[in-house]
Design a protein around this nucleic acid. Structure first.
Lengths: 118, 118
DNA sequence: GATCAATATTGACAGATGTCGATGTCTGGT
DNA sequence: ACCAGACATCGACATCTGTCAATATTGATC
Protein backbone atom coordinates (compact mmCIF):
# COMPACT_ATOMS: atom_id res chain seq x y z
CA UNK A 1 0.00 0.00 0.00
CA UNK A 2 2.10 2.85 -1.21
CA UNK A 3 -0.72 5.28 -1.69
CA UNK A 4 -2.04 7.57 0.97
CA UNK A 5 -4.68 6.57 3.47
CA UNK A 6 -6.94 9.42 2.63
CA UNK A 7 -8.60 7.43 -0.14
CA UNK A 8 -10.08 10.39 -1.90
CA UNK A 9 -12.45 9.42 -4.65
CA UNK A 10 -11.37 10.22 -8.21
CA UNK A 11 -13.96 12.95 -8.25
CA UNK A 12 -12.45 14.49 -5.17
CA UNK A 13 -8.90 14.41 -6.39
CA UNK A 14 -9.83 15.69 -9.82
CA UNK A 15 -11.95 18.55 -8.56
CA UNK A 16 -10.62 22.05 -8.77
CA UNK A 17 -11.10 22.84 -5.10
CA UNK A 18 -10.18 21.09 -1.95
CA UNK A 19 -12.76 18.62 -0.68
CA UNK A 20 -12.54 20.23 2.71
CA UNK A 21 -13.84 23.51 1.37
CA UNK A 22 -16.24 22.15 -1.23
CA UNK A 23 -18.52 19.92 0.76
CA UNK A 24 -19.01 18.86 4.36
CA UNK A 25 -16.56 16.18 5.38
CA UNK A 26 -18.18 13.03 6.67
CA UNK A 27 -17.39 11.99 10.21
CA UNK A 28 -15.42 9.08 8.82
CA UNK A 29 -13.39 11.24 6.51
CA UNK A 30 -12.68 13.70 9.30
CA UNK A 31 -11.52 10.91 11.55
CA UNK A 32 -9.16 9.59 8.90
CA UNK A 33 -7.60 12.95 8.16
CA UNK A 34 -7.29 14.31 11.69
CA UNK A 35 -4.57 11.86 12.81
CA UNK A 36 -2.36 12.94 9.92
CA UNK A 37 -2.73 16.59 10.83
CA UNK A 38 -2.24 15.75 14.47
CA UNK A 39 1.04 14.06 13.64
CA UNK A 40 2.16 17.18 11.80
CA UNK A 41 0.84 19.61 14.36
CA UNK A 42 3.97 19.86 16.47
CA UNK A 43 6.94 22.17 15.95
CA UNK A 44 9.47 19.44 16.52
CA UNK A 45 7.77 17.06 14.12
CA UNK A 46 7.37 19.74 11.48
CA UNK A 47 11.07 20.41 11.65
CA UNK A 48 11.83 16.70 11.59
CA UNK A 49 9.81 16.27 8.42
CA UNK A 50 11.41 19.25 6.77
CA UNK A 51 14.93 18.26 7.77
CA UNK A 52 14.40 14.74 6.47
CA UNK A 53 12.90 16.03 3.22
CA UNK A 54 15.73 18.47 2.66
CA UNK A 55 18.44 15.91 3.38
CA UNK A 56 20.73 14.31 0.82
CA UNK A 57 18.82 11.60 -0.98
CA UNK A 58 15.62 12.58 0.75
CA UNK A 59 16.43 10.62 3.84
CA UNK A 60 18.18 11.15 7.13
CA UNK A 61 19.44 8.89 9.86
CA UNK A 62 18.32 9.33 13.42
CA UNK A 63 21.78 10.27 14.61
CA UNK A 64 21.74 13.36 12.43
CA UNK A 65 18.24 14.25 13.54
CA UNK A 66 19.17 13.97 17.19
CA UNK A 67 21.91 16.52 16.68
CA UNK A 68 19.50 19.01 15.17
CA UNK A 69 17.51 19.35 18.38
CA UNK A 70 18.07 20.16 21.97
CA UNK A 71 15.98 17.20 23.01
CA UNK A 72 16.78 13.79 24.40
CA UNK A 73 17.25 10.86 22.05
CA UNK A 74 14.12 9.07 23.28
CA UNK A 75 12.07 12.17 22.62
CA UNK A 76 13.22 12.37 19.01
CA UNK A 77 12.64 8.66 18.68
CA UNK A 78 9.13 9.18 19.98
CA UNK A 79 8.35 11.93 17.48
CA UNK A 80 9.72 9.84 14.64
CA UNK A 81 7.50 7.00 15.73
CA UNK A 82 4.46 9.26 15.72
CA UNK A 83 5.26 10.41 12.19
CA UNK A 84 5.96 6.89 11.04
CA UNK A 85 2.80 5.48 12.61
CA UNK A 86 0.79 8.20 10.91
CA UNK A 87 2.23 7.11 7.60
CA UNK A 88 4.15 10.29 6.96
CA UNK A 89 7.65 8.84 7.22
CA UNK A 90 9.18 5.68 5.80
CA UNK A 91 11.64 3.76 7.90
CA UNK A 92 14.64 1.80 6.66
CA UNK A 93 17.24 0.07 8.75
CA UNK A 94 20.72 -0.17 7.29
CA UNK A 95 23.23 -1.72 9.63
CA UNK A 96 23.05 0.02 12.94
CA UNK A 97 21.45 3.10 11.49
CA UNK A 98 17.81 3.84 10.84
CA UNK A 99 16.89 6.13 7.98
CA UNK A 100 13.65 8.02 7.66
CA UNK A 101 12.22 9.41 4.44
CA UNK A 102 9.20 11.60 3.80
CA UNK A 103 6.24 10.05 2.01
CA UNK A 104 5.58 13.00 -0.21
CA UNK A 105 2.41 11.64 -1.75
CA UNK A 106 0.79 11.51 1.67
CA UNK A 107 1.83 15.07 2.43
CA UNK A 108 0.60 16.15 -0.98
CA UNK A 109 -2.75 14.50 -0.36
CA UNK A 110 -3.13 16.24 2.96
CA UNK A 111 -2.26 19.56 1.36
CA UNK A 112 -4.68 18.93 -1.48
CA UNK A 113 -7.43 18.17 0.95
CA UNK A 114 -6.81 21.20 3.12
CA UNK A 115 -6.31 23.86 0.56
CA UNK A 116 -6.45 22.05 -2.72
CA UNK A 117 -7.10 24.57 -5.41
CA UNK A 118 -8.81 27.27 -3.41
CA UNK B 1 -4.11 42.29 8.75
CA UNK B 2 -6.06 40.26 6.26
CA UNK B 3 -3.17 38.12 5.14
CA UNK B 4 -2.12 34.91 6.77
CA UNK B 5 0.20 34.76 9.72
CA UNK B 6 2.63 32.41 8.04
CA UNK B 7 4.55 35.30 6.55
CA UNK B 8 6.31 33.31 3.90
CA UNK B 9 8.99 35.22 2.09
CA UNK B 10 8.36 36.00 -1.57
CA UNK B 11 10.96 33.43 -2.45
CA UNK B 12 9.12 30.81 -0.49
CA UNK B 13 5.74 31.54 -1.96
CA UNK B 14 7.10 31.75 -5.47
CA UNK B 15 9.09 28.54 -5.31
CA UNK B 16 7.81 25.48 -7.07
CA UNK B 17 7.85 23.24 -4.03
CA UNK B 18 6.61 23.53 -0.53
CA UNK B 19 9.01 25.19 1.88
CA UNK B 20 8.45 22.35 4.28
CA UNK B 21 9.95 19.87 1.84
CA UNK B 22 12.57 22.10 0.27
CA UNK B 23 14.57 23.29 3.19
CA UNK B 24 14.67 22.80 6.94
CA UNK B 25 12.09 24.89 8.71
CA UNK B 26 13.48 27.22 11.32
CA UNK B 27 12.32 26.75 14.86
CA UNK B 28 10.44 30.01 14.58
CA UNK B 29 8.68 29.01 11.41
CA UNK B 30 7.74 25.65 12.88
CA UNK B 31 6.32 27.32 15.95
CA UNK B 32 4.22 29.64 13.83
CA UNK B 33 2.79 26.89 11.65
CA UNK B 34 2.18 24.22 14.28
CA UNK B 35 -0.70 26.05 16.02
CA UNK B 36 -2.59 26.28 12.75
CA UNK B 37 -2.23 22.58 12.13
CA UNK B 38 -3.10 21.89 15.73
CA UNK B 39 -6.31 23.83 15.34
CA UNK B 40 -7.18 21.76 12.29
CA UNK B 41 -6.08 18.45 13.75
CA UNK B 42 -9.39 17.45 15.26
CA UNK B 43 -12.24 15.61 13.57
CA UNK B 44 -14.88 17.95 14.94
CA UNK B 45 -13.00 21.05 13.88
CA UNK B 46 -12.27 19.65 10.45
CA UNK B 47 -15.97 19.05 9.95
CA UNK B 48 -16.78 22.50 11.34
CA UNK B 49 -14.46 24.13 8.82
CA UNK B 50 -15.83 22.10 5.97
CA UNK B 51 -19.45 22.68 6.92
CA UNK B 52 -18.87 26.41 7.22
CA UNK B 53 -17.02 26.52 3.90
CA UNK B 54 -19.73 24.58 2.13
CA UNK B 55 -22.55 26.70 3.55
CA UNK B 56 -24.61 29.25 1.64
CA UNK B 57 -22.59 32.42 1.30
CA UNK B 58 -19.55 30.73 2.78
CA UNK B 59 -20.70 31.30 6.30
CA UNK B 60 -22.77 29.51 8.91
CA UNK B 61 -24.32 30.50 12.19
CA UNK B 62 -23.53 28.65 15.37
CA UNK B 63 -27.10 27.39 15.72
CA UNK B 64 -26.77 25.44 12.48
CA UNK B 65 -23.39 24.10 13.47
CA UNK B 66 -24.68 22.89 16.81
CA UNK B 67 -27.30 20.85 15.04
CA UNK B 68 -24.70 19.11 12.90
CA UNK B 69 -23.05 17.47 15.87
CA UNK B 70 -23.94 15.27 18.75
CA UNK B 71 -22.04 17.51 21.11
CA UNK B 72 -23.04 20.08 23.67
CA UNK B 73 -23.33 23.71 22.66
CA UNK B 74 -20.38 24.77 24.85
CA UNK B 75 -18.22 22.17 23.19
CA UNK B 76 -18.99 23.47 19.71
CA UNK B 77 -18.46 26.99 20.97
CA UNK B 78 -15.08 25.90 22.29
CA UNK B 79 -14.01 24.39 18.98
CA UNK B 80 -15.12 27.48 17.11
CA UNK B 81 -13.07 29.58 19.47
CA UNK B 82 -10.01 27.44 18.83
CA UNK B 83 -10.44 27.84 15.08
CA UNK B 84 -11.08 31.55 15.39
CA UNK B 85 -8.13 32.11 17.71
CA UNK B 86 -5.90 30.29 15.25
CA UNK B 87 -7.04 32.66 12.56
CA UNK B 88 -8.82 30.06 10.49
CA UNK B 89 -12.35 31.35 10.97
CA UNK B 90 -13.78 34.84 10.81
CA UNK B 91 -16.47 35.83 13.24
CA UNK B 92 -19.37 38.18 12.64
CA UNK B 93 -22.21 38.98 14.97
CA UNK B 94 -25.52 39.87 13.36
CA UNK B 95 -28.33 40.38 15.81
CA UNK B 96 -28.51 37.45 18.12
CA UNK B 97 -26.65 35.20 15.75
CA UNK B 98 -22.94 34.72 15.26
CA UNK B 99 -21.67 33.73 11.85
CA UNK B 100 -18.39 32.07 11.10
CA UNK B 101 -16.61 32.07 7.74
CA UNK B 102 -13.49 30.26 6.58
CA UNK B 103 -10.39 32.33 5.88
CA UNK B 104 -9.45 30.53 2.72
CA UNK B 105 -6.17 32.33 2.19
CA UNK B 106 -4.91 31.03 5.52
CA UNK B 107 -5.94 27.50 4.67
CA UNK B 108 -4.34 27.86 1.25
CA UNK B 109 -1.10 29.04 2.83
CA UNK B 110 -1.02 26.10 5.18
CA UNK B 111 -1.66 23.74 2.29
CA UNK B 112 1.02 25.40 0.19
CA UNK B 113 3.52 25.09 2.99
CA UNK B 114 2.75 21.45 3.64
CA UNK B 115 2.57 20.05 0.19
CA UNK B 116 3.03 23.00 -2.04
CA UNK B 117 3.94 21.92 -5.53
CA UNK B 118 5.21 18.46 -4.84
C1' DG C 1 30.93 -14.07 22.86
C1' DA C 2 31.95 -9.59 25.24
C1' DT C 3 31.59 -4.99 24.28
C1' DC C 4 30.18 -0.73 22.28
C1' DA C 5 27.30 2.38 19.70
C1' DA C 6 22.66 3.43 17.59
C1' DT C 7 17.64 3.18 18.35
C1' DA C 8 13.65 1.77 20.61
C1' DT C 9 10.78 0.89 24.65
C1' DT C 10 9.18 1.66 29.34
C1' DG C 11 7.60 4.24 33.31
C1' DA C 12 6.77 8.47 35.32
C1' DC C 13 5.20 13.07 35.50
C1' DA C 14 3.55 17.80 34.42
C1' DG C 15 0.82 20.17 31.41
C1' DA C 16 -2.48 20.42 27.50
C1' DT C 17 -7.00 19.01 25.51
C1' DG C 18 -11.97 17.56 24.76
C1' DT C 19 -16.06 17.26 27.01
C1' DC C 20 -19.87 18.49 29.97
C1' DG C 21 -23.21 21.05 33.23
C1' DA C 22 -23.93 25.37 35.19
C1' DT C 23 -23.84 30.03 34.68
C1' DG C 24 -23.05 34.53 32.50
C1' DT C 25 -23.85 38.02 28.74
C1' DC C 26 -25.88 39.95 25.12
C1' DT C 27 -30.05 41.16 21.97
C1' DG C 28 -34.69 41.37 20.30
C1' DG C 29 -39.40 41.17 21.32
C1' DT C 30 -43.42 41.54 24.56
C1' DA D 1 -38.58 46.50 32.55
C1' DC D 2 -38.83 41.72 31.77
C1' DC D 3 -38.21 37.51 29.41
C1' DA D 4 -36.48 34.16 26.16
C1' DG D 5 -33.19 32.60 23.15
C1' DA D 6 -28.27 32.52 21.12
C1' DC D 7 -23.86 32.19 22.27
C1' DA D 8 -19.73 32.50 25.45
C1' DT D 9 -17.33 31.57 29.71
C1' DC D 10 -16.24 28.94 33.85
C1' DG D 11 -15.02 24.96 36.65
C1' DA D 12 -14.34 20.24 36.80
C1' DC D 13 -12.98 15.96 35.08
C1' DA D 14 -10.79 12.17 32.45
C1' DT D 15 -7.74 11.46 28.87
C1' DC D 16 -3.99 12.50 25.86
C1' DT D 17 0.73 14.43 24.95
C1' DG D 18 5.61 15.85 25.29
C1' DT D 19 9.44 15.12 27.85
C1' DC D 20 12.99 12.75 30.43
C1' DA D 21 15.98 9.04 32.82
C1' DA D 22 16.55 4.33 32.86
C1' DT D 23 16.63 0.18 30.50
C1' DA D 24 16.21 -3.01 26.62
C1' DT D 25 17.38 -4.41 21.90
C1' DT D 26 19.95 -4.85 17.92
C1' DG D 27 24.03 -5.00 14.92
C1' DA D 28 29.09 -4.40 14.14
C1' DT D 29 33.64 -5.22 15.83
C1' DC D 30 37.40 -7.06 18.39
Amino acid sequence: MSKSQLTLTPVETAACCSPLLREPLSTDQAERVAPLLKALADPVRLRLVSIVAASEGGEACVCDLNDAFDLSQPTISHHLKVLHDAGLLDRTKRGVWVYYAVRREVLADVAALIGGGV
